[in-house]
């Protein structure tokens, strides 16, 4: 079984610790993760902005990187969701379309893979902190990843889970939206931070570093002492502590 990591350009460049947490956690289950280095970015920034030629040029690196593996795992519901758009993106190219459909069928967001494929919910972690969770839109709405992270957190010893009010509201990131419509985006992330603060949680977790970079950036700007991390990081840290 060949399992390959789709790190996403953001985690590759800014949050390598998330990728590390994923591969080290999975190694505990005997899953030897491969990392094909030809991968770059899923192409979502171009795709969502309407530049589909540019999106295709980028998406090709992903299609090539993961052509011969059995499972693709990624720390982002949004970038995995982008792979779900590939058949549409390549609808006029029979060969690429077929590759796109194949890739979509084997692509998993990290917690999806852990829970649905490996059947793991208890990773044996201990994390004695008050934690709240922001379900990112693309992961939860487009991929349907809703129960998996909650199931994983429920098994972490010492973890006190506090639900985030209006959790399903978008954090306001939206890729280029945050730059093009920065005022609206700013209003959205400020509201999200208000809700995070209301929970009095020490830690905010999520499944998408783009959204978390947005919320963390705003919390930091406001000097709110909330630690923001990917669930993979929390689980890995919790396993090391256990």
């Amino acid at each position: 079984m060949k399992v390959s990591l789709f790190i996403t350009c953001l985690s590759d460049a800014i949050y390598p610790r998330v990728g590390e947490a994923m591969v080290r956690l999975l190694a505990n289950y005997g899953v030897k993760v491969e990392f094909p280095t030809v991968q770059t970015c899923c192409g979502q920034p171009a795709f969502n902005s309407g530049y589909w030629d540019e999106a295709r040029a980028t998406a090709k690196t992903i299609l090539e990187a993961f052509e011969d593996c059995d499972f693709v795992i990624s720390p982002s519901g949004s970038c995995t969701g982008m792979i779900h758009h590939y058949p549409k993106l390549f609808e006029n190219d029979a060969i690429m379309y077929e590759k796109a459909v194949k890739l979509q069928s084997k692509s998993y967001e990290f917690t999806q893979f852990l829970v649905q494929v490996l059947g793991v919910t208890d990773v044996g972690a201990t994390f004695p902190h008050k934690v709240t969770y922001h379900p990112s839109c693309h992961g939860s709405r487009l991929l349907g990843v809703k129960d998996e992270p909650l199931a994983l957190m429920s098994k972490v010893k010492g973890l006190e889970f506090v639900p985030l009010p209006f959790a399903e509201d978008c954090c306001g990131f939206g890729g280029t939206f945050a730059v093009k419509m920065s005022e609206i985006s700013g209003a959205m992330v400020s509201e999200k931070s208000d809700h995070v603060k209301e929970t009095e949680a020490e830690v905010l977790v999520g499944l998408d570093m783009a959204c978390l970079m947005n919320i963390a950036g705003n919390l930091r700007y406001r000097n709110e002492p909330v630690r923001v991390m990917h669930l993979a990081e929390l689980l890995y840290e919790g396993v090391k502590q256990a």
Binding site: D12, P16, T37, S185, M213
Partner: peptide
């Protein structure tokens, strides 16, 4: 400009994931 008017941006760490792989 717009982004940092309500946020702080993280800088790139010394080594990317592919550097560490």
């Amino acid at each position: 400009k717009g982004w940092n008017s309500v946020r702080v941006t993280p800088s790139l760490p010394k080594k990317s994931f592919r550097d560490q792989w």
